[in-house]
């Protein structure tokens, strides 16, 4: 393909040189090697018809005609599609890079990442297991708590009953005792009353005697 490009540029140079015999040869001018073909040729033909643009044509023509023979050689070597020993060397370099990167990068880091993934998965799995265990333990604890509460409330009830019974018994006893004492006290009171009345009777007689003696001074 490069040869095609070069071929077109070679035919171009002599064809354009006819219009510039009056121009002096310019010093060596480096031209863009790839932009040479096609473009000036068409423009040249359309422009040469009008005499007013002759100077413009002359510039283009000069720039093309001024190409020294050495430039042609350079162009000859300007090969875009130049296959040579670089190709197998690049292949070898690529293969070397592939094996070297595999040694220092893909395999070690890949293994490391896989191991880490496995470890994390394992840990996650074990965490899930303990969560079940924790649930079981929690249930057990709740059961134990329930049992303990029931026991405590039962004991409490029992104690309450016992104490109330005891208290009532004591109360009844006390009441009986008090009643007995009361009875006794009442009885003794009655007795004292009678005694007092008796003693009063005898005193009344003595008093009436005295009153009679005082009132009736005989």
């Amino acid at each position: 393909m490069a040869n095609m490009i070069m071929a077109s540029s070679k035919t171009l140079i002599p064809s354009s040189s006819y219009s510039s015999p009056f121009l002096p040869q310019k010093p060596r001018l480096q031209l863009p090697q790839i932009s040479l073909p096609k473009f000036p040729k068409t423009q040249l033909k359309s422009l040469t018809n009008s005499t007013s643009l002759k100077s413009m044509t002359a510039i283009i023509a000069a720039s093309l005609a001024a190409a020294p023979p050495s430039l042609a050689e350079v162009i000859e070597k300007a090969a875009l599609f130049d296959f040579d020993l670089t190709l197998p060397i690049m292949m070898a370099e690529f293969l070397f890079l592939m094996f070297a990167l595999d040694k220092v990068y893909y395999t070690p880091l890949g293994n490391f990442m896989d191991q880490r993934d496995a470890a994390i998965k394992e840990k996650l799995g074990s965490v899930k297991d303990t969560s079940a265990e924790v649930k079981q333990l929690e249930e057990q604890a709740a059961a134990v708590m329930r049992a303990a509460r029931a026991e405590i409330s039962a004991a409490l009830n029992k104690m309450k009953k016992e104490t109330t019974m005891e208290v009532e018994q004591k109360l009844a006893e006390e009441r009986k005792k008090l009643e007995a004492e009361l009875q006794e006290a009442l009885a003794s009171l009655e007795k004292q009353k009678e005694e007092t009345i008796k003693s009063l009777d005898s005193q009344i007689a003595a008093l009436s005697d005295e009153i009679v003696k005082k009132v009736l001074p005989i």
Partner: peptide, 29 residues
């Protein structure tokens, strides 16, 4: 022409130019 040359020198389009080394009878880029 000088301007053109100046521009070209700045841009430095060197397509298809190779820095040839010789290995035996072969060329490499």
């Amino acid at each position: 022409i000088n301007t053109l040359k100046g521009l070209y020198d700045i841009s430095g389009v060197e397509v298809g130019q190779h820095f040839y080394w010789k290995i035996g009878s072969f060329q490499v880029h």
